[in-house]
């Protein structure tokens, strides 16, 4: 069953991504992930701000 489970899991993950993350304003998965997972004092007004130009990851 393992050979069936793995693609299903992948498809499910993709479906969830597209369903959950269909949001406006140039929001990246990075931003959404941060919003969902950070326990920070997040101000949701940031979703309407354009993303700044940042240094690329090393």
């Amino acid at each position: 069953m393992a050979f069936i489970k793995r693609p299903i899991r992948r498809l499910r993950r993709k479906a969830l991504l597209h369903q959950t993350f269909r949001l406006p304003q140039r929001l990246s998965l990075h931003t959404i992930g941060a919003l969902r997972e950070a326990l920070a004092d997040v101000d949701l007004r940031i979703v309407n701000q354009p993303l700044p130009q940042l240094t690329p990851f090393p």
């Binding site: 701000q49 700044p52 940042l54 240094t55």
Partner: peptide, 10 residues
């Protein structure tokens, strides 16, 4: 670090 500055708008 600049990657996480957007989390602190106020």
């Amino acid at each position: 670090q600049e990657q996480e500055a957007y989390l602190l708008p106020g």
